[in-house]
């Protein structure tokens, strides 16, 4: 429950800041128009009110011990790192952020092996084989078949991608 309260509090702070930001950075609109800043302000005001209502609802329906910050201390860092969900989120984020420089070929090959291993596949041959087939098969399909060039990466990875595209 404390996590839910914190999530709502984070939303509240973010949207309150957005409301301040749009008001402070945009000029006021003429009275005959609904200006560029007024529509987002309407939405943000409604959002802030509803999030406050939601926080009050959660607070009222939660026993005092569950909404205590002490329950956060029970979360231990080593357990968090070993958690599959946490690892999965990190893998997906790393994959998304590395695509630009590592390129589709290397990034995807490593990602599939890592994620498949995380969710239970242990056979090295299956991991490497399926990753190779999916990575190179899809790259060729999109690059050659649909002229959609997936990220090439930098340096030698770019040269490899260009070579594949010229096949």
């Amino acid at each position: 429950m404390i996590l839910e309260l914190l999530f709502n509090a984070a939303l509240l702070i973010f949207f309150a800041y957005c409301h301040y930001y749009i008001g402070a950075t945009m000029p006021a609109s003429p009275p005959t128009e609904l200006g560029a800043e007024q529509w987002p302000q309407l939405i943000l005001r409604a959002l802030i009110i509803l999030i406050v209502v939601n926080i009050v609802k959660i607070y009222r329906s939660t026993p005092a011990e569950e909404r205590s910050l002490k329950s956060l201390k029970e979360i231990k860092l080593p357990d968090l790192i070993k958690n599959k969900l946490f690892a999965g989120i990190i893998f997906i984020l790393l994959y998304a952020f590395s695509l630009e420089f590592a390129g589709f070929l290397l990034g995807t090959f490593v990602f599939i092996i890592a994620y498949a291993r995380l969710i239970g596949e242990r056979r090295i041959k299956v991991l490497a084989g399926s990753s190779f087939v999916m990575t190179f098969g899809l790259y060729l399909l999109f690059a050659r078949g649909l002229s959609i060039m997936l990220p090439r990466g930098y340096g030698i990875l770019r040269s490899l991608a260009l070579m594949l595209e010229s096949i």
């Binding site: 695509l99 498949a116 969710i119 239970g120 999109f142």
Partner: peptide, 22 residues
Amino acid sequence: PYSILGPAIVLFATIGSFALQN
């Protein structure tokens, strides 16, 4: 098996998002 299908879904999702605007 889902251990292969899961990463494959992420892979398709990635291509789907990237192909929109490269």
